[in-house]
Amino acid sequence: MTQETPEPTDTEVKFPKRIKHRGRVLATIYGKSKSYPSYRVAWTTAGRRMMKAFLRYGEAKRHADGLVKDLAKGSQVTALTGGQARDALAALERLQTFYQATGRRVSLLAGISEYCEAASKLHGRTLGEAVEGYLRTVASVKRKDIKETVEEFIAADEPRTKAGEGKRAQLSAKYAYNREIQLRRFASTFPNTAVCDLSKEHLDAFIASLGELKSKSRNRRAATSAKSRNHYRAAIKQFLQWAVRKDYLPLTHRLLEADAMRPERANTAEVTFYTPKELRALLETAEGAMRAIIAIGGLAGLRTAELLRLDWADVWRVPGHIEVTAGKSKTRQRR
């Protein structure tokens, strides 16, 4: 049987006992006292003073000797408490498991830094909630070039410009044609760009560029007025809403919140009209159906497209009135 080395008595050891390395004190052992009935080892690491208590001097001495070796090597392990050391080891085990499952190596510092950065943006929500929300929206979005997507949108809407037998087309062919021009110009501005990669900055830049385009006229006036820019905004809005339904954009894209997408107040010119004398001259000069069109347009205020959809039944159906049915009205409301 081996005999244990007897513990030295407090009279045999002079306290505080300083443990040195190359003449430099790196740890200090304090003896028992009335206030502290245990041996205490104190050391400083990373600017923090640390202390640990032991019931026996031998345990305190062995711990102090080990500390001095670690401190002399510049190790930061001595700055950790027991609980912190256990947490660090458990975290490293999780990272190793992650590496084995995915093949991706992530350092403990990188993992914690990324977590803290993400958590600071979630306003109290957990990362799990954020990931679930992401998977319900962004993760299901299909990547498709904006030029191809615009052509798909145009083709998908073309049947609406065709009128069925005895019915009015759902979409004006002229309106669809103008919208095609607007959207193709929009798509050509961002070549090799997926719809899901569009940002508010893209929309701001495009709307701003419309004011820089010049017409072919001699006075070189801007090609797009405030009213025209509003038409572009409407076309882009329709396209983006369709892209959401087709999963080319996430539901939470918020592109329509771009500053440039807010409608402008168009500076409309003063409305002019024919005087009674001028209208009389037009009626006296016109012949046949044209005289009826001028009379109804001038006196009832119908739009040209609405006039062309009328037949005599609409004129005589209600005595003293011209009826514009919902199917013939621009607003699709009877009046």
Rank of each mutant, 00 (worst) to 15 (best):
S140L: 15
L279C: 07
K200Y: 01
R303H: 07
G124W: 09
L203C: 00
A326L: 05
H321E: 14
A269F: 01
V150T: 07
E264V: 01
E148N: 09
A173G: 15
V271F: 12
E151T: 06
L55Y: 11
K216T: 10
K32F: 04
D314Q: 04
Y115P: 00
K20N: 09
K227P: 00
V106F: 04
R229A: 13
R179Q: 15
Q76N: 12
A155Y: 03
Q182E: 13
R229H: 01
Q76K: 15
L95T: 05
R184W: 10
A64T: 04
R136A: 15
D314V: 03
S329G: 12
E151H: 12
S120T: 09
A205E: 10
S199I: 01
R24D: 05
A119Q: 06
K14C: 03
L255A: 01
T126S: 15
Y248P: 04
K142A: 12
G103T: 06
Q3L: 13
R56E: 11
Q333E: 15
P37S: 12
G166C: 03
P276C: 07
Y232N: 08
L67G: 02
Y115G: 00
Q100E: 15
E129V: 01
I181R: 14
A101F: 03
R179D: 10
A313N: 14
R125T: 04
Y99D: 02
R49S: 08
R220P: 02
L279N: 08
K216D: 13
Y39N: 03
E287W: 03
Y274S: 05
G128P: 00
S140A: 09
I181V: 13
E151N: 14
T268R: 13
W43Q: 00
G288E: 09
E152N: 11
A243V: 01
K144I: 13
T268C: 02
A64P: 07
R62M: 09
L307A: 05
G58W: 09
F239L: 02
